[in-house]
């Protein structure tokens, strides 16, 4: 059910995005950084689901607060003439890679376990 909701949401979102008006180029940096922040939150959410410490409230607040804060920081950076968004990007993308690694390792472990069980099973039958 959750998977269906995610896929449906992605499809509806893509349709809305294709039909929505294009934003001015000046603001595209803000949208880009917000998208990266949101993606980071999503990967963080997947990781926490796998680690079984998923908290919906933490996830939702992270999703929105990260996006809004990153936009605010980018704006501040533009005012101060310093590329703060690069630092935000570094943190978000760095964390995304960490989360992806954790997700990957989790599935590799699972796969190895399944393989070990498969090999162990015939032996057990033989012993019987």
């Amino acid at each position: 059910m959750i998977v269906i909701a995610i896929i449906l949401g992605c499809v509806i979102g893509a349709v809305i995005g294709i039909n929505a008006p294009v934003i001015p180029y000046t603001y595209s940096t803000f949208l880009a950084i917000a998208v990266v922040a949101a993606l980071d939150s999503v990967f963080g959410g997947i990781r926490s689901v796998l680690k079984k410490n998923f908290d919906l409230v933490v996830f939702i607040t992270g999703f929105f607060c990260n996006s809004i804060l990153s936009i605010a920081l980018t704006y501040l950076g533009q005012k101060l003439n310093i590329d703060i968004y690069l630092a935000a990007l570094l943190v978000f993308v760095g964390r995304m890679f960490t989360n992806l690694t954790i997700i990957r390792l989790h599935y590799i472990d699972k796969w190895k376990e399944a393989k070990a069980q498969k090999q162990a099973k015939p032996k057990a039958i033989e012993e019987k």
């Binding site: 959750i2 909701a5 995610i6 896929i7 449906l8 949401g9 992605c10 499809v11 509806i12 979102g13 893509a14 809305i16 995005g17 294709i18 929505a20 294009v22 934003i23 595209s28 949208l31 880009a32 917000a34 998208v35 949101a38 993606l39 999503v42 919906l56 939702i60 999703f63």
Partner: peptide, 16 residues
């Protein structure tokens, strides 16, 4: 909630 977030996220990506 996840569906709504996915809508926001993919709409943002598509617009960008």
């Amino acid at each position: 909630i996840l569906g709504c977030m996915c809508i926001l996220l993919s709409a943002g990506i598509a617009i960008q």
